[in-house]
C-alpha cells in the first residue's frame, strides 16, 4: 500500500521552548557523564592512584578545580591547574547548573499554575543560575 512520508516541518511539530529545554536537559545529563569520566580518568593518569584517596578523586571528578587538589600532598600541583582542566571544570559547572536549575523550574511548574507565578519563579531561577555560574567560574579561574 502506497503511503506518503509523514514528516512534519520544523515549525509544525510543536518544537517550542518547553520541548527545546526538555531536549537540552537530556543532552546536558549525557554531557555531565562524559565530563566527569574525563576528569576521573585524567586524575588517575596524573597520579591520583598513589597520591589521592577516593574522596579526593571524586571531588576532582565532579568539580575539577585545581584548588581541590592543593590540599593533597601532591608532588606537582601545577599539573592540575592547566587551562585544559579549567575549561573542563567550567564546562561541567555550566552544564550542571543549567541542568539543575531547569530541573527545579520543571518541578516548580508542576505546582505553580499561574503565568505570573511561573514567570517569577523562572526569573529567580535564572538570576540564581547566573549568580552560581559567575561565582563558580571565578573560583575555577583564580584558584
Amino acid at each position: 500500500m502506497a503511503s506518503k512520508p509523514r514528516t512534519l516541518p520544523l515549525n509544525k511539530r510543536g518544537m517550542n521552548f518547553e520541548m527545546f529545554m526538555w531536549i537540552i536537559t537530556r543532552l546536558t545529563a549525557l554531557a555531565m557523564y562524559g565530563l566527569i569520566l574525563i576528569a576521573i580518568i585524567g586524575a588517575l593518569i596524573m597520579g591520583a592512584r598513589n597520591q589521592m584517596n577516593i574522596a579526593d578523586v571524586l571531588r576532582w571528578g565532579f568539580m575539577p578545580n585545581a584548588g581541590h587538589v592543593q590540599s593533597v600532598p601532591l608532588e606537582n600541583a601545577e599539573a592540575w591547574a592547566t587551562p585544559f582542566w579549567r575549561w573542563v571544570g567550567s564546562a561541567l559547572l555550566l552544564v550542571a547548573v543549567g541542568h539543575g536549575v531547569h530541573g527545579l523550574v520543571v518541578i516548580a511548574d508542576d505546582y505553580i499554575v499561574s503565568e505570573r507565578g511561573r514567570g517569577v519563579v523562572r526569573f529567580i531561577s535564572i538570576v540564581m543560575m547566573i549568580g552560581m555560574s559567575i561565582i563558580g567560574l571565578y573560583v575555577l579561574w583564580t584558584a
Binding site: L8, K12, R13, G14, M15, N16, E18, M19, W22, D109
Partner: peptide, 24 residues
C-alpha cells in the same frame, strides 16, 4: 494514524507548557 491529517495541530497542543514537558 496514516489516514489522519491533523498531526501538526495536535503536536502543537501537546507541546504546550501543560503538555509533554510535564511528563517526568
Amino acid at each position: 494514524d496514516s489516514r489522519d491529517e491533523a498531526a501538526a495541530e495536535r503536536m502543537e497542543i501537546v507541546s504546550e507548557t501543560s503538555g509533554l514537558a510535564r511528563c517526568h
